[in-house]
């Protein structure tokens, strides 16, 4: 085999190994429905408390102080659980004694998490705490989200319609880019006399 071919073969095989390794790393467990309770089946020993009901307004952030104890190692508020997708959440996974845990004791977590409601309606925030040995527990917070307060001229300018601006940009920016690229393309591909 020529040396040239050997180098190319090594490069191609390396890329294939990388490709297979990457594809192999994408695993799915169809039995797991994303909530901790699938694995952490020993419930009732860890403690988890916060407000059980909250009234909020769309776009206005509110803070929940979440306290977990009796051996808790993690507090998680992941997307897909309850109606968590309807909120922007400042911290979705807090480990015991990590930066945001304000309780220095081992096995106890106290954390302030900011939630921003995205849409009106009655929503449920689902929080889980978990530890080794299949220990886990969840807590649901019922949140009633109403519309934004009416803004009058005397209380300040109306809120900026960011989604509206974005929708306009969604048409204008790609159109402007296309125009520029067509000009570049014409300059590059025109036949020279």
């Amino acid at each position: 085999m020529k040396r040239n071919y050997a180098t190319k073969l090594i490069v191609v095989l390396s890329f294939l190994v990388l490709l297979i390794a990457a594809a192999g790393s994408v695993m799915a467990h169809p039995d797991y429905t994303a909530e901790c309770g699938d694995c952490h089946t020993n419930t009732g020993t860890l403690t988890l408390t916060t407000n059980s009901t909250v009234n909020a307004e769309t776009g206005d952030p509110f803070i929940l102080q979440i306290q977990a104890g009796n051996g808790a190692e993690y507090v998680a508020i992941k997307s897909g659980w309850g109606d968590n997708d309807y909120f922007r959440i400042s911290d979705t996974l807090i480990q015991d004694n990590s930066v945001n845990d304000t309780n220095a004791a081992v096995g106890e977590i106290t954390v302030d998490v900011t939630f921003t409601p995205l849409l009106n309606g009655s929503r449920t925030i689902r929080i889980w705490t978990a530890a080794t040995g299949l220990l886990g527990d969840s807590f649901d917070v019922a949140v009633t989200v109403t519309g934004e307060p009416s803004v009058t001229v005397t209380t300040g300018p109306p809120p900026v319609d960011l989604v509206g601006i974005w929708t306009m940009m969604l048409y204008t920016v790609p159109a402007a880019t296309a125009l520029i690229l067509v000009i570049f393309g014409y300059l590059a591909l025109r036949r020279k006399k």
Partner: peptide, 8 residues
Amino acid sequence: LWSIVSLE
């Protein structure tokens, strides 16, 4: 938005 521009 910028994915569309990148595609172009």
